[in-house]
Amino acid sequence: MAKYAMVMDTRSCIGCGACIAACDLENDTEWRDGRRRTHVPEFFFGEFPNVTRVFVPRLCMHCENPPCVTVCPTGASYKNEDGVVLVHHEICIGCKYCIVACPYLARYLDERKGVIDKCTFCYDNRVLQGRQPACVETCVGHARIFGDLEDPNSEVYKLAKSGVAVQLRPDLLTEPKVFYIRRAVEE
């Protein structure tokens, strides 16, 4: 029993997209625009000459209260014993209710298989073998930190519990398990 979580250090993400490529290769995802398991959208703040550009890597937040699981009719979407939200491809009918219900845009329809695909934290293919998810292993800036939220010695535990790293849209009460270190704002 674990509670896997990730911390994004937006200060050290350079927007290279290596995580996207590593994920697509590792998980054989459908390579279509906007239809992949992880994204690195960029945001701009301020006005010239004081402009800040921030990359906010995004993937499934593996919520403690996942709305996608609540709406799934067939029970294909589920949260496993390690807190990872997964999809049983065998019983997914592709109704897309979960895509609509997910606040974090984490899901897409894999048109090759007609079923929903999403980030798995590389649970079956890496985490169970004691390795890090592909996006974490490949990240050049150590911007993605993976670990167990129930292990007090882990880096994610320290960052999340100290309030250094925060959740996106905590007001939705989904309890996401991906945390973000606040961006450095040029004052």
């Binding site: 609540t70 709406v71 799934c72 009719p73 029970g75 019983i91 009918i93 007609g114 929903i116």
Partner: peptide
């Protein structure tokens, strides 16, 4: 027809892990 897998529509009644709380069910 809007389903990704239309031939599996029967699973909304017969799925082994049917979710009775889903509005689609």
């Amino acid at each position: 027809l809007d389903l990704g897998r239309p031939e599996r529509f029967y699973l909304v009644f017969m799925s082994p892990k049917l979710n009775f709380g889903s509005m689609i069910t």
